[in-house]
Amino acid sequence: MKTQHIIEAVEAVQAAILANESQIESLDRAIGDGDHFINVRRGCEVLMGLRGEIAPLPPGEAFGKIGMKLLSTIGGASGPLISSFFIAMGKSLAGIAEPDRVQFAAAFAAGVEAIKSRGKADLGEKTMLDVLIPVSRLLQRLAEQGAPLPALCGQLAAEAHRNMLATRDMTATKGRASFLGERAIGHIDPGSKTCEVAIAAVCDTLKEPA
């Protein structure tokens, strides 16, 4: 992958997030405090402004810069988590001019690990990790198997979708929805929805013949 792919992904994610405004927003109003969409949109906007600055950088440095910028932009619970993800990806890709798919998958896994340790959370706690962990595992498996890009993208998007929906039936033990106890059941976790939207958007940019 090249940094140009990151820029295209940023643009795709921003568009997809905006297109899903009302759903993301209403999910965080239902079991959170109503700011998740705004937080994520603020993050997307600042990344759009960062495109020129990261364009000349190798992917690892680009991810690092994205992470640091998001860290001082998003705030809330999602801010440090998403930032940690990109900072860890950046570290994982340090010195690699053009990472291959296996390296990318390893970096993605490092990013997810960073979220786990920053958020002290794991699978089944009704957070964005319920989408990210299975997607990361599948990504590593498919990358190692050398699956063709369109298939890989399709499967990842489907995995994200399925796991996003699965958060609906959970009670939360981490994040703001944990305050609600049983009342959180029946609502999809907003952070999971955001991750699903972002993953699907990135997959879409990749599926198309480059």
């Binding site: 700011d35 603020r42 001082s72």
Partner: peptide, 12 residues
């Protein structure tokens, strides 16, 4: 102070 109902960021 962060944005409304949003934790501030570490640089602050």
């Amino acid at each position: 102070p962060g944005q409304v109902f949003t934790s501030p960021t570490p640089d602050q």
